[in-house]
């Protein structure tokens, strides 16, 4: 990933890194066969840098972690879920531009 601020979430660290996290967490559900996911990638990377310390940003590969995608009824990617105190507080489906995602994050901070 372009930014080292972007974390990698898996089924093994999801509970501790996302559900129990003290700060809001933005999770990018993606797969490497998904063209639109590749388009969204750089935008998510820049959010990780811009919101460093305020929002944890990470990616979850749905191919490798289908149980996590299933748990949140993800049936389309890219999908971004914003978690706060273990709950999903916002969802963005499909490719969105950075400005729109920032608005969404700012609303929850």
């Amino acid at each position: 990933m372009a930014s080292d601020k972007v974390q990698t979430f898996t089924k093994d660290n999801f509970e501790t890194s996302v559900i129990q996290a003290g700060t809001p967490v933005l999770v990018d559900f993606w797969a490497d066969w998904c063209g639109p996911c590749k388009q969204l990638g750089p935008t998510v990377d820049s959010l990780a840098t811009d919101y460093d310390g305020r929002v944890t940003v990470g990616k979850l590969n749905v191919d490798e972690n289908p149980e996590v995608a299933g748990r949140f009824s993800i049936r389309g990617i890219p999908t971004l879920l914003l978690f706060k105190d273990g709950e999903v507080v916002d969802t963005v489906v499909g490719v969105a531009e950075g400005a729109k995602l920032k608005q969404m994050l700012d609303k929850h901070l």
Binding site: P36, S73, R75, G76, I77, V93, G94
Partner: peptide, 13 residues
């Protein structure tokens, strides 16, 4: 339900 079973892109979803 968009993204949770509703889609406009078969190749994506």
């Amino acid at each position: 339900l968009m993204g949770h079973g509703v889609s406009t892109c078969a190749t994506c979803d």
